[in-house]
Computed example of a mutant assay.
Amino acid sequence: MANRVRTAVFPVAGLGTRFLPATKAMPKEMLPVVDRPLIQYAVDEAREAGIEHFVFVTGRNKGVIEDHFDRQFELEVTLQERGKLEALAELQRDLPLAGLASFTRQQEPLGLGHAVWCARDLVGNQPFALLLPDMLFKAEPGVLSQMMAAYEQHGGNVIAVEEVDPADVGSYGVVARGEGPDAGFAVTGMVEKPKPADAPSNLIISGRYIIQPDIFPLLAEGVKGAGGEIQITDAMQTLMSRQRFTGVKYQGRSFDCGSKIGFLTANVVFALDRPDIADGFMKEVRELANRTA
């Protein structure tokens, strides 16, 4: 039986240059989709999947993320005194239990693989989930929960994938599909940003992983790949020769909130799904559409 996945790693050290000047003083992971920051959605997804320990790999000027996952007593007292008990209860629900959130620094921007390696001592010799907060999903159950079901069946390593237009595969990591259903098929290969003619499929890696700790010695070698950075995909390719990798073509929709279009689209979709604001927001959208038609 596969070891239970209890820990999740969240790489949050990126500079967010595509959202300047908004991210000059505020981490991109704290950008709100409606009224919740991106990082909170990722933590909520992990918690739903049974994660107990939340590891954040941060960088300079990211202290606000640590503050977000801490109690703010003055705010709590003010909400209590003003009778805003629902807002207070929501803030308290969002917090990991004491001692279950850990923070470590990636002191140089050496790539995603290096960020994951920085979490090695906090993860220990156990499998872990890796969630990229830029990727936001609307899925029920959550994408990581769908992956956990595949992990319980197959063990090893699990990657969430989705289909894209074959012409667009050159922007992503792409997997080769082996036997098995969408909910858990064998991954027989992967390649980073292939030319469309050379891509093994149109299934791209979608920012959610379950990985065995054997990845850490491979990342420690510090081999640089695409962009001159230490890539997690390169280490997974090596690990694939030793361990099973399972792909999960998840049920749901993704939003790449590292791009302005994806971020704005996510705000629209999530706003329209909120009973408290959907009607008023739709009215504004329709009026705007009529004025610009």
Rank of each mutant, 00 (worst) to 15 (best):
V34M: 06
V223N: 10
A220S: 13
K260I: 08
V143R: 04
G189M: 01
V9Y: 00
A98S: 14
Q40I: 00
A8Y: 02
A149H: 14
V158Y: 08
V161I: 05
V248F: 03
D35P: 00
R47I: 02
M147A: 09
P32I: 01
G155V: 05
D256Y: 06
R120Y: 09
L79K: 15
R82N: 14
T7L: 03
A150I: 05
Q237M: 11
L95E: 02
K249F: 04
G155L: 07
Q126E: 15
L79M: 15
V174H: 09
T188Q: 14
A197F: 05
A119M: 03
Q107E: 14
T188Y: 01
A167Y: 02
L38M: 12
M26H: 07
Q251G: 04
P32M: 08
S201I: 12
S145R: 13
P11K: 10
N157A: 05
R82T: 14
G178K: 08
T17C: 03
R105E: 13
I215W: 04
A186T: 14
R120V: 05
G124H: 12
V33N: 00
D70L: 12
L130S: 04
D44P: 00
F245E: 07
E86F: 10
F137R: 02
V57S: 01
T7M: 04
K138V: 11
Q243K: 13
Q126L: 10
F137W: 07
V143I: 15
G59M: 00
